[in-house]
Design a protein around this nucleic acid. Structure first.
Lengths: 189, 189
DNA sequence: AATGTGGTGTCGGTCACTGACACAACGCGA
DNA sequence: TCGCGTTGTGTCAGTGACCGACACCACATT
């Protein structure tokens, strides 16, 4: 039966996403997911530590892409510009996987337990980005704030892109980062 | 046995905090918490929806204070200035409850499951602040971003204040919001 | 005294998640 | 070709979070 495990993992992710959409996260049991994927329930927990994590596996790719982009950004850019660049590039992962990204984000948005996990992932990712910025010499406190505000803009852009696919993710990102600048520009300080 | 229920709830919170510190969150069962509080396990779940929530009950006070402050801020202030004002005022709750919050924050910091819940609480609170800003006429997207960046600054200031109590929270807040403005001011846009 | 209400104990059950053990498929060297 | 370790899997027997239903008890109201 076992070939590489990758096959089963993919089927489990697919089955989970389908079932979460069909009857909701809370009304789906791990046994059902496993059954649809054609494996044993125990196998589910061999591939994913819990019922939520099955929807958060591509995160490693996004993380790697973000880190790479931040590290390789040209000198002379300001923190927020580095991040806009990085999110543009990493965003391609979302755009290329849209058929998977869209229902996934939909389910997450309507399930508190999944939103909690998403926030945790975001926090971890944000901290990694902040560290990457520090590696580039961005001041300590500034790096943390930049990463969090940048992520807030990215998250908002991603949501807007889901709601309005007529514009591409880049356009939404530009607008979100413009808002960010407007926010501080108009502040009295 | 039942007097008002408030008594049991307080004992449950106390027992939970103690046990989470003594043997850790994961190694504590709800039955043990209930036993130490002198009530039945079922009663625990009548007062708190789950094992984590028992540590997140004062949140309502902070939320109420923030909402009030945002709503009552004088006209003419920019979003970030409204928030700085609000966090200054709400921050007093933290300063007054420092001796109680400290062990609680300690447990949360070292327990992933509790950190997840904390992030969820922060997100909910942030969304409430955003809505309060919108009520004041702040543009839709801007309100969301302002609330999140403002919260990021507040969170960073609170952390700095825990690590360095020599300066008061206000000072840390001022510095964080200055950083925020510096972030966008130097961006090319 | 009758009645209502809210907090509680008890019981039975579902389901997420785990440890232990055995088995099947593959890769690889002998 | 045969053994052999490695890896993915199935099975079984748990533990513990959490819920629905019902009965009971303290207290307030009338």
């Amino acid at each position: 039966m076992p070939r590489s495990g990758l096959e089963a993992r993919r089927r489990l992710q697919q089955a989970a996403l389908e079932l979460y959409r069909e009857r909701g996260f809370d009304q789906t049991t791990t046994a059902e997911i496993a059954a649809r994927a054609g494996v044993n329930e125990r196998t589910f927990f061999r591939h994913f530590p819990d019922k939520r994590e099955v929807l958060f596996h591509g995160e490693a790719d996004l993380r790697a892409e973000l880190m790479r982009s931040v590290a390789e950004a040209p000198d002379g850019l300001q923190p927020l510009d580095i991040l806009l660049r990085a999110f543009r590039e990493a965003g391609r992962i979302l755009e290329e996987n849209r058929p998977f990204s869209e229902p996934r984000l939909e389910v997450i948005a309507k399930t508190p337990a999944l939103r909690e996990r998403e926030l945790a992932k975001a926090a971890s990712l944000t901290e990694a980005v902040a560290e990457a910025l520090r590696q580039r010499g961005v001041a300590d406190r500034l790096a943390g704030l930049a990463a969090q505000t940048g992520w807030a803009a990215f998250h908002q852009a991603a949501g807007a892109w889901i709601d309005d696919p007529s514009a591409n993710l880049d356009a939404h990102l530009s607008r979100a980062f413009d808002d960010l600048r407007a926010l501080s520009a108009t502040s009295t300080g």
